[in-house]
Design a protein around this nucleic acid. Sequence first.
DNA 1: TTGAGATCATCTCAGGTGAGACTTTCTCGG
DNA 2: CCGAGAAAGTCTCACCTGAGATGATCTCAA
Lengths: 152, 152
Amino acid sequence: METQPGDPAALGLLMYRAHQLARAKANQAARPTGIELQHAGVLTAVRDGKARSQRELGEALGIDKSTLVRIVDDLERRGLLRRERTPNDRRAYGILITAEGERSLREAGELFRGAMADLLVVLDAEQRGQLHELLSRFVAQERQERQERQER
Amino acid sequence: METQPGDPAALGLLMYRAHQLARAKANQAARPTGIELQHAGVLTAVRDGKARSQRELGEALGIDKSTLVRIVDDLERRGLLRRERTPNDRRAYGILITAEGERSLREAGELFRGAMADLLVVLDAEQRGQLHELLSRFVAQERQERQERQER
DNA sequence: TTGAGATCATCTCAGGTGAGACTTTCTCGG
DNA sequence: CCGAGAAAGTCTCACCTGAGATGATCTCAA
């Protein structure tokens, strides 16, 4: 994968490969818990109160609405979270994490973190911070764009 | 997408979102040419002689073998590349890009580069270099691992 | 030379994914 | 208050993807 730093297209491939590698390792590590990255992402967002409806959830995580229904179905079936009708908007559901969900999330989260930490040994602390900062800035523009579009 | 720089798991989500954003913009930009990122990746690798067989191609790009057969089928049908039996190994195909393929690739490549460049305006030249360097190092370990595994 | 096992490409099939239709509910201007 | 249009969630269907099976060919040791 020797690519020229000047070529913008090369960065795209690198992002893809990086994601691919991270996902593979993380899912592999957490296999015993039966929880995959998508599940953990949903559970985390719910636990941290980052999203109240399924729609917000999907948007925050970049998961399609149809796929999200299936994931929430799955997690609800396993008792890791539950839907609850909201009093003021009867179209929407409030999504709540259960105690069991918190437990599973902690367990799987440890494994994910471990796997990712393994991969990150090739970078020192400063470099990880840089990478985080650069990717955050890169990704942030999408949200900005969407906001601007709405304002018009 | 406010995440804590210290959390390794957060980096995984950022990688996913970054890839997602880049892919969406790039594919959207090149839609008129009928060429998607995967096609371009294959054509580029072939043009640059990075891979002689389909197997190597898939490995270089992180594309599954089955999927790759379909992509090559597609590109061959459109006359952008062709398979050619190799003289010394009649199992494998040599993959060659056609003149038309080079033309299409240049055209789509421009559009991809443009889209990616648009996204990269939020980073200055030095930061792009950093990002490239960091991701390269992160991704490189997979190849290393594989090599080490083979040596045993 | 031959037979066992590896390798390349292909095919098949089961499972995942997203766009769009649909239902119910909300919002808001008239 | 009412009707039009938007929004949340669900469902359907067509497409995409990857793991494993298959067939042809190669490699290599006996």
